[in-house]
Design a protein around this nucleic acid. Structure first.
Length: 553
RNA sequence: UGCCUGAUAGUAUAAUGGUAGUACGACGGUUUUUGGUACCGUUUGUCUAGGUUCGAAUCCUGGUCGGGCAACCA
């Protein structure tokens, strides 16, 4: 019984094209990042769409770096992008670069000039801007617009040859200075930049603009469906126009709404600012909505793919609740993460009727969601345990199913204990609590007949290991920081990182593996940070468990 | 302001002229050696005003509101 999922609008287009026999039913998409930053969750949506579409319709996807602006692009970014796409679980057909096509693009420009459809303009940026007119007034042509093809050819060759400085001249397409679409008012298609390119080095000093590179690159690769975000809708006429005038492969552009998510920002410019201004540690800071940040935080590729599946693809603007991403990672980790015990805010419990110095080995399964428990591990038990401070109350309210004088709980995988007494220091802080255990209530062999409502986690004091545990909260205090008054950075959550330097963890956690998710029972999902060492374990909290009790309080 | 887009529960997303459905959330319950999970139930919606039609979320017209474009960025 495969439930029938309806198609999104792009899948509909693809199916229509296949049915119509367009391109012989071939599907070739591309994922075209500019290597000027790290990929974020918004890119994941595009990646899943492009690669997912190809997979579904027996097609392929190219990874193409849109590297036409040498001043912003770096090899470091290329490497991180490739790593992230692979990690998400996708394989590209070919790794390509817009810069691979610089010769072809140059020749395309020459073709345009010969057809009288492009000219070299000596105006300054300001002059060009003012001559463009406004939405209500048409632009005005300047003296350069009527240069002959011969002259333009020579000037353009001179631009390429490095005879001019940055900004001296540009090549513009000659289209329509009165067009209601401002992008058609003779857009710039080549500019001079004496800058080192991360791949072509210093071979070029003129570089094509996006509009004169993207569509042509698609055409060169014979991309059948070029999928981009909504802000490129008004570029589509240009995309189509150049393809038509150059008489090259008729790739088609389709636009969908980009992902927006609450409590975060989703633009490379802003993410770069957060890194540069040290609001976060790095691009892969676990609070960042980057793929690498989410990975370091403990998100799995499966959960991110599932998220992208659930948010859907449409043309209307959207704002996805961050909690949906959290749902996806909980759903995945619940099925895969091994259960372990860790006490983050410790208080000592002394079991007065358990022999001092005795160690008992108890057993717990790795994951109750898996048939057979997915194996298990031993855990030492003794008369002194660390338990969570919040699991004891001096004056427990009704329905508090944990500890207070006279109350009983089960220690997970161990015994039922009854709280008899506690001790406070001079400041009134509880320092120790005293319990008696029920010997007949041993986990798995309980003959006590006692039923308790609560079960709490614990770690044996003499056997506990310590670890640094980093708890993360949302990076911003408001749902849509980009849309608030003033600077988005004014809304950064000052408490987005809470470091617990000495958490007590059960002994087996010394064997924790990098990249694997663990559930600290009742506390959430955690994973080893990349800076963790054998001497100093560091765990990142991926996400808390859903907490129905906290909500009522 | 000109052009382009879009508008379905709190948030997303279906219904392609024929019963407005699904997921997440919220709320309530059952189970539970995680106040987790699982399971069950409840809740809330077609921007607005007209028109076409036996029948409109869907088609038409006007309005309202949101987003994009006017970079030598992509």
């Amino acid at each position: 019984m495969s439930e029938e999922r309806s198609l999104n609008f792009i899948e509909e287009i693809v199916e229509e094209d296949i049915a119509a026999g367009k391109h012989g039913g071939r599907v070739l998409t591309r994922f075209p990042p500019e290597p000027n930053g790290y990929l974020h969750i918004g890119h994941a949506k595009s990646i899943c769409l492009n690669f997912g579409l190809a997979k579904k319709y027996n097609g392929k996807t190219n990874l193409r770096f849109d590297d036409t602006n040498p001043t912003k692009e770096e090899t470091e970014y290329v490497d991180s992008i490739k790593e992230d796409v692979k990690w998400l679980g996708f394989d590209w057909a070919e790794e390509l670069y817009a810069s691979d096509y610089f010769d072809k693009l140059y020749n395309f420009a020459v073709t345009l000039i010969k057809k009288g459809l492009a000219y070299v303009d000596d105006s300054t940026a300001e002059e060009i801007a003012s001559q463009k007119g406004t939405p209500t007034e048409p632009g005005t042509p300047n003296e350069y617009r009527n240069r002959s093809a011969e002259e333009n050819l020579q000037l353009f060759a001179d631009m390429k040859a490095g005879k001019y400085q940055d900004g001296d001249k540009v090549l513009r397409a000659k289209i329509d200075l009165a067009s209601p679409n401002m992008l058609l008012r003779d857009p710039l298609i080549y500019r001079i930049k004496h800058a080192h390119h991360h791949r072509t080095g210093d071979v070029w000093c003129i570089y094509p603009m996006y509009d004169f590179a993207h569509g042509q690159s698609d055409a060169i690769e014979e991309i059948t469906h070029s999928i981009c975000t909504l802000e490129f809708v008004s570029h589509r006429p240009l995309y189509d126009l150049f393809i038509e005038e150059l008489n090259i492969f008729p790739s088609k552009q389709y636009e969908f709404a980009r992902l927006n998510m609450t409590y975060t920002v989703m633009s490379k410019r802003k993410l770069l600012q957060l890194v540069n201004e040290k609001h976060v540690e790095s691009w892969d800071d676990p609070r960042m909505a980057t793929i690498s940040g989410l990975r370091r935080r403990g998100y799995t590729a499966t959960s991110i793919r599932e998220f992208c599946e659930r948010i859907g693809v449409a043309k209307r603007e959207n704002m996805i609740d961050f909690s949906l991403l959290e749902f996806c990672i909980r759903e995945d980790l619940n099925k895969t993460a091994w259960r372990r015990m860790a006490v983050l805010d410790p208080i000592k419990m002394i079991i007065t009727n358990y022999p001092e110095g005795k160690t008992e080995t108890l057993h717990g399964e790795n994951n109750p969601e898996v048939e057979g428990g997915d194996g298990g591990r031993d855990m030492p038990f003794s008369n002194e345990l660390w338990i969570e401070r919040e699991d004891f109350m001096e004056e427990p309210p009704k329905k508090f199913f944990r500890l207070g004088v006279g109350l009983m709980v089960r220690l997970k995988n161990a015994y039922i204990v009854k709280c008899d007494d506690f001790k406070k220091d001079a400041n009134g802080n509880v320092t120790e609590i005293y319990c008696t255990y029920i010997p007949e209530s041993k986990s798995g062999h309980d003959t006590s007949g006692i039923n308790v409502k609560g079960t709490i986690h614990w770690v044996s004091v003499p056997h506990a290991k310590t670890a640094e545990v980093r708890l993360y909260d949302r990076l911003f205090q408001v749902e849509d920081p980009s849309n608030e008054e003033g600077d988005f950075k004014d809304y950064i959550n000052p408490n987005s990182l809470h470091i617990i330097s000495n958490a007590y963890i059960e002994a087996d956690l010394a064997n924790a593996e990098m990249g694997k998710g663990y559930q600290f029972i009742r506390k959430g999902y955690f994973t080893l940070d990349k800076h963790s060492t054998a001497d100093k374990l560091v765990f990142n909290r991926t996400v808390t468990l859903k907490d129905g009790w906290a909500k009522k309080g």
